[in-house]
Design a protein around this nucleic acid. Structure first.
Length: 152
DNA sequence: GCCAACGTTGGC
DNA sequence: GCCAACGTTGGC
C-alpha cells in the first residue's frame, strides 16, 4: 500500500470534473515525465491512496481524496495526432506513456499549499522540496495520516 | 507575466 | 558522454 500526491490543473481536470464522471473516475492522461510515469507503471497498485492536488490555479492545494482504480495502461492521447499530448515516437506496439485510473472518494475542503507548508509534520513532503516539479510524488504514511486528520 | 529550477534535445 | 540551449512547470 502506497500513497501519492497527483497534480491536476483544475482548468483541465478539477475534482468536480472527476466527480462528474461515471464512478467518479478519470484516466490520468497527459503525464509526460519519465519519473512520474515510472511511479504509475512500476509502483502504483489498485487501492493506493491519492491526494488530488490542484496546481497552476488561484489557490493551489489538496482538493480531495482519491484512490488508484486501475493498473497502468497506455495513455491514449499519445497516439492522437491532433492532441497536445501526441507523441510521434509512441506506437500502440511500443507505447511510451502510461496512465492509471483515479477514482475520487471524497471532495474535501481545499487544503492550501500555504497551510501545508505551515505544518511541521509535513515539512518533508516531496511536494515541498525545493524546485520540485514532479506531477506525481510519493507521500509517506505519516504524511497521509496527518492530512487525513486535517481534512476530517 | 516573471523566473527559478529542472528535464530534454541535439551538436560535437 | 558532455553540456549549451531550449522548453516546461508552477508558485508568486
Amino acid at each position: 500500500m502506497h500513497y501519492w500526491l497527483m497534480k491536476s490543473e483544475p482548468g483541465d481536470v478539477s475534482i468536480d470534473d472527476a466527480l462528474a464522471m461515471p464512478d467518479h473516475t478519470v484516466g490520468w492522461y497527459g503525464v509526460r515525465n519519465y519519473q512520474a510515469r515510472n511511479f504509475m507503471r512500476d509502483q502504483m497498485r489498485v487501492d493506493d491512496g491519492v491526494l488530488f492536488y490542484h496546481s497552476s490555479c488561484e489557490v493551489p492545494g489538496i482538493a480531495g481524496i482519491a484512490r488508484v482504480a486501475s493498473a497502468a495502461y497506455p495513455d491514449p492521447t499519445q497516439f492522437e495526432r491532433k492532441n497536445k499530448y501526441f507523441d510521434a515516437k509512441a506506437t500502440p506496439e511500443q507505447p511510451r506513456w502510461m496512465q492509471v485510473d483515479v477514482q475520487v472518494t471524497r471532495k474535501t475542503r481545499l487544503l492550501p499549499l500555504t497551510e501545508i507548508r505551515s505544518i511541521p509534520e509535513l515539512a518533508d513532503m516531496r511536494l515541498l522540496a525545493r524546485g520540485n516539479r514532479l506531477s506525481i510524488t510519493p507521500v509517506t504514511k505519516a504524511e497521509w495520516q496527518c492530512i487525513q486528520k486535517l481534512l476530517k
